[in-house]
Design a protein around this nucleic acid. Structure first.
Lengths: 341, 341
DNA sequence: GCGCTACTATCTGACAGTAAGATAAACTGA
DNA sequence: TCAGTTTATCTTACTGTCAGATAGTAGCGC
């Protein structure tokens, strides 16, 4: 009974489907009287607009004219030389994931590096505007320069690390809290009893101490682990670590950096025979280790998808409330852990 | 020079566009040799799949011709009568936010209630398929029936509460962990010194103890608060609360339920004169209280937007990795707190 | 009154990927 | 040999949009 398409509606009115389409979208091409007649008929016949078809067509038509449908800028806040080597692989995979997703959605990616070797924020702003770029994806970075000077009302933006405050835009990152539970469950199953957490203070502070908080609360609700106070250091250093290791006697060490593994070996630990080492981000290790894969490429991918949806729905500028999308991580077996006992 | 439609690709191969389309989706209708030939050509010519067109067409062709609609199902797992009164408002606002967002994007929403008063999961499955519905938004619920029996390869789904496991689909919810930091910072600024946390065990367990973990870790990195052990109860009960309140002497109580406020008054506390009460979800309180607005309508809105983007990019089924999108909460002043000292 | 321009209102056609059903060719079995 | 089945491919219809085509009218000059 109900009319399901502009064509059918047009047939009943003796008009062409385009006139009806234009009328429904209040185009100035259509005479006012015709518009009213179309709107009335649409109501009467219970016509229901199909948003998917509309989106498809407007995308197609726009795209065919401009050849490229608005590029997306991928911004590296630091430049490769400033970044410590250990972060390079993680960083690169975020970028690759983002590029893959962009390609799939028909976007072209342009890469910009800020920082000492790169361009300034002011320069970036004018480049982006002059090229008509509407989407900005920001790669993870240790430091966070103030990007609030960019004219955000022109852009949609997504950050690929834990929430950024200047400005507070939507972000996509690992689910650190949940990941710690995943690690602890695994270690428990493997038979470890004295897990010890070692971390850069600054590293955990950026994510509101989620690693440490999850580590601590886990002990409250799971028996079988001996509670060893985490070692949180301003700088990861040999002396403090070795003292802690000697005093607390962990049977497995959780850490991002695998220099800690070297120090363990120097203290006479056999890995994995007598002690375990669990890396909290295996993409930071140049050698095979057991631990967490934080899925950087998936982070990049999802960030790009989110950016696409922001652009698509025309939501630019600083959001009223910045959301954080978190991606679970997966366990990776490796030579630094074994089944105990 | 890139080929960007199945038709153009088909022309170059001397095939019909449907054969190419079928081949690209690995349909058994197409001969293996032809498939390989098509895939090779697609790679060579740089063919780009258009997910929006795919989503549109599969939606259109599926279901009966008459009932084709771009509709979205909003599913209440429990039914209103089963839900405790205190959750009603929060629940309703999630729904309203979702409906508002759907309207804005041109989708029509159909509402389904499961549970004792409602339909069964099996029935839901067949209704959704027969109506050609492709998007499912699941409202927050205390219990979580097993939805993995739905034929998810036909649907895109988003859950509006903390991660759901059967099945693990993308979810949108409050950032509980961050919210606790917001609360603690506020209370510190107001001059409180002895915050005490009271909570249903089951409530916090569902979100992996995030409230408690954040509460505990906050004390580690912020001086000025006296550390009072949280009261985690199987059931919120007067006796346990009053004993805990008497023993630990908090000057401000953090809790979801405001029956606790009544118990405090019964014990002789004057609120806000001698003691403070901070509600962790003001939408659960029938009377004005200070505390957190978890922004349920924004949760519904963002969930619907995410669902929309899943449908547009034709991503249905259980995702490989389920993401969790978290929304910050905002502080609400109220008559149960005051500036101290 | 004819041709020209300018403008308005409406129409034509192409476009995306899908799926049901049609067609055609090859093969099977009595 | 021919009816029946299987396999591979094709035809057709479907959504809303937009650039460009077309048709109709009006105004103006000669």
């Amino acid at each position: 009974m109900a009319v399901n398409s502009v064509r059918e509606l047009a047939r009943r009115l003796g008009l062409s489907h385009t006139t009806v389409s234009d009328a429904l979208r209040d185009s100035p091409r259509v005479k006012k009287a015709t518009k009213e007649q179309v709107l009335k008929a649409a109501r009467e016949f219970g016509y229901h607009y199909n948003p998917l078809a509309g989106a498809l067509m407007s995308q197609m038509r726009r795209g065919s004219v401009e050849t490229f449908r608005g590029d997306i800028a991928v911004v590296d806040l630091e430049g490769a030389k400033m970044r410590p080597e250990v972060f390079a692989r993680f960083h690169k995979e975020v970028l690759q994931g983002a590029e893959r997703a962009a390609r799939k959605m028909g976007f072209k990616v342009e890469f910009f590096a800020l920082g000492s070797e790169g361009i300034s924020v002011d320069r970036l702003n004018s480049i982006l505007i002059s090229r008509g770029i509407r989407g900005i994806l920001i790669l993870p970075a240790g430091s966070s320069p103030d990007l609030s000077v960019l004219q955000w009302d022109h852009f949609s933006g997504v950050y690929t690390d834990y929430i950024i405050e200047h400005p507070a835009i939507d972000s996509v990152c690992s689910n650190h809290y949940r990941s710690m539970f995943l690690v602890m469950n695994r270690l428990a199953r493997m038979g470890y009893r004295r897990p010890g957490l070692v971390m850069h203070k600054a590293h955990d502070e950026r994510i509101m101490h989620r690693w440490e908080a999850a580590f601590r609360i886990y002990h409250e609700y799971h028996t079988g682990f001996t509670n060893i106070a985490p070692l949180m250091l301003e700088e990861l250093n040999e002396a403090d670590f070795k003292r802690w290791f000697h005093d607390t006697k962990p049977d497995v060490v959780l850490c991002h950096r695998n220099r800690v593994l070297r120090w363990m070996l120097e203290l006479g630990a056999k890995v994995p025979e007598t002690h375990g080492f669990c890396c909290l981000n295996v993409k930071m290790s140049p050698v095979p280790v057991a631990g967490l894969d934080l899925l950087p490429s998936m982070i990049g991918e999802r960030a790009m998808e989110h950016l696409n949806s922001l652009i698509y729905t025309n939501r630019c500028g600083i959001p009223e409330m910045a959301s954080t999308t978190t991606i679970p991580s997966v366990w990776v077996d490796g030579p630094t852990l074994r089944q105990v006992g």
